[in-house]
Design a protein around this nucleic acid. Structure first.
Lengths: 216, 216
DNA sequence: TGTACATCAGTGAACGCGCGTTCACTGATGTAC
DNA sequence: TGTACATCAGTGAACGCGCGTTCACTGATGTAC
């Protein structure tokens, strides 16, 4: 399938190559038909290997997904060591930076994000894994809220819940528009457009003030 | 399983009773282990019927779910004919009314909402159905935004995208806290607490103004 | 460097489990006369 | 009202498909001497 012809010698190298081919094939085929609808033999066929070969490398589809997630998170950690970003969420640019980073990450890892979402529904273990991933990011975000309260702006609620709302919005909005194909109207969305509407919604939601006409 | 002893005579009545028992059993067992993990025989066993009985009433699990959704939407339509609510989203109470209605609906129909979400991942047909349901609600919401722009407050973006963001937030937040068991910290959430944080976040997000220190 | 044997990655046909689906049968309800 | 037959809801054992998983085999790579 257009994959480079192997010029590998050595048994370990060959095994590593096959494992990599299986992972790459899995990503492609997950993206195409989703995790739950993918059979082991779909993956091996896409990778151009025999069915039995799969079990030389993984004990199950879930384990393969775990391996993909490990790779993904390793990359995520590198990205986190970027030049220090602005932590002050009263600043729209600070919010936008985070939203854009999330959006780019989601787009780059659609296969894994969808697979994880699907796996979490069928297998509670992946639900917990998903929560851990989000929690790490959430802890980081709570720190940013302190700049908001320090500026005398009350948050809309318990910081932990606000983080959860923040993540819920990003996660579901990205899923809707990048995976599910939008809101059913046939409308497409551009990256900047998506990032801007999320940024303004969240920036106001966290650090904005409601219309003055309201009691409260 | 504690279900009332049948005192039904008549063939149609008996068939209707069995169909109702299967639906009720399905809801219970979907809530317990999810849609994808539920076998046909789990449903019939829970309903106290033979496996073959299922096919006298439904051709597949998907069709049963469709029937449950029809019931659910019929109820939802009744609820929509409530005493007219305040459509002005610059008013926090108007936002809260919508959020509370959504939250109550989700809580009352957890089984169906989860089943629909799961079915949508495996079967595109249900993805479309889900979009249609949301679209109807979304059209209603877009109308409410006119009060915001009329008050001179710019929306965070294209109204259709703002509706999508609104729905994304509600849907995923409700799923996280009512189904998945929260953010992994073990924290629980009360209904009022959830509704209030969502209300404030959304009220500001749609009709609030960002901190004055920002350009834009 | 060469030869003989051991080890390992990969193969793919075959096996077997799980579960959806069928169908001949039962007993009860409805209908015809 | 009674009798005989037809129809229907429900039953559950059995069937068979799909797919995950195994395993004897092949050929290539590594190792020992």
């Amino acid at each position: 399938m257009g994959r480079p012809v192997s010029t590998v010698t050595g048994r370990k190298a060959k095994a590593a190559e096959t494992e990599a081919a299986l992972k790459a094939a899995a990503k492609r085929v997950f993206a195409e038909r989703g995790y739950v609808n993918t059979k082991i033999t779909d993956i091996t066929a896409e990778a151009g290997r025999a069915a039995g070969s799969f079990y030389n490398h993984f004990t199950s589809k879930d384990e393969l997904l775990t391996a993909l997630l490990t790779d993904m998170l390793a990359e995520g950690d590198e990205a986190a060591e970027q030049p220090a970003h602005n932590p002050d969420f009263t600043d729209r640019d600070a919010v936008r930076w985070h939203v854009a980073a999330y959006w780019a990450f989601y787009r780059r890892h659609i296969s894994e994000m969808v697979a994880l979402r699907q796996a979490a529904m069928a297998n509670p273990e992946f639900g917990l894994r998903l929560q851990e991933i989000l929690a790490a990011d959430g802890a980081h975000m709570v720190g940013h809220f302190e700049h908001v309260t320090a500026a005398g702006i009350p948050l809309p609620g318990d910081p932990r819940l606000v983080v959860s709302a923040f993540q819920s919005l990003l996660d579901q909005f990205a899923y809707t528009w990048l995976v599910a194909g939008g809101d059913g109207s046939g409308r497409q969305i551009g990256d900047d457009e998506a990032i801007d509407v999320l940024t303004d919604f969240i920036h106001r939601g966290i650090a904005g003030t409601p219309p003055a006409t309201q009691e409260r």
